[in-house]
Computed example of a mutant assay.
Amino acid sequence: MPPPHGFRYDVHTDGTVVVTHHGRAAATLRGPRAARFLAEIDAGDPQLVMARWTGNYRRGNERAARLHPRHRR
């Protein structure tokens, strides 16, 4: 699966963090959640962290999992 791309984040003066994906707002983080997000961005791959925080990381394997014999009815 290719790594996620197209994410950006902007930190506003009041501490709010807005995460965008291809120019559209995907998440708005305030207070302690914003601080935790910024600490995590510094520690890891920013694109992967933003994909995880916005919930946009589950791409590519859903169809394959749905077709697995274990999931058939």
Rank of each mutant, 00 (worst) to 15 (best):
R72E: 03
P2G: 04
A25K: 01
D10A: 14
R24M: 15
A65G: 02
E40A: 15
P2E: 14
R58A: 08
M50Y: 05
G60K: 00
E40P: 14
G55W: 02
H71Q: 10
W53S: 00
D42F: 12
D10R: 15
D45T: 08
G15S: 00
P2H: 08
P3T: 07
L29V: 05
R36G: 04
R73N: 07
G44M: 14
M50N: 06
I41V: 08
H12E: 07
T13D: 11
E62N: 05
D10C: 13
P69D: 04
D10Y: 13
R63D: 14
R63G: 13
A39W: 08
P32N: 09
G60M: 01
A64N: 00
P46R: 15
H5E: 13
V18W: 03
V11P: 06
R8C: 03
A34V: 05
R24H: 13
R63F: 14
G15K: 10
L29G: 07
P32T: 13
R59A: 11
H12S: 14
F37S: 07
P3Y: 05
P3L: 14
P2Y: 09
A26M: 12
V49R: 01
Q47G: 07
Y57L: 01
V11L: 13
M1R: 15
R24F: 15
W53F: 11
A34C: 03
A51I: 03
V19M: 10
H22L: 11
N56G: 11
G60E: 00
P4H: 15
G31I: 00
P46H: 04
